[in-house]
Amino acid sequence: MNNAYLYALTGIVLFTLGLYALIIYSHLLRKILAINIMASGVFLQLVALSTRARPLLDAVPHAMVITGIVVAVSATALALALMLRLRDASGSAELIEESTE
């Protein structure tokens, strides 16, 4: 037994927390933060469980997470830019339910 499950569970809680926030909050910046926290949760879980390979090091999940982090930052950058543009165009950084025209 090692700390793998501890961190994995932490990851799950983070994931769920992020999911909750993503649904509940309407401000886009907050949603973006929530996604990032979800991502952290997933990464944590991915790596934490790989420590079960001790004493060897399972590098594959590590590489995956690095890839994931870069993908996440790319997505965040795009999301933020989009948010700013949206704010420019509509005057609000929240998503408005479109009217059922």
């Binding site: 999911l19 996604i35 997505a75 999301a79 989009l82 949206l86 509509s90």
Partner: peptide, 16 residues
């Protein structure tokens, strides 16, 4: 833009 934003969030959530 709003649609794109929504799409982005949904898409990221799906990926997660």
């Amino acid at each position: 833009l709003g649609a794109a934003m929504r799409y982005l969030l949904v898409s990221l959530l799906g990926s997660m």
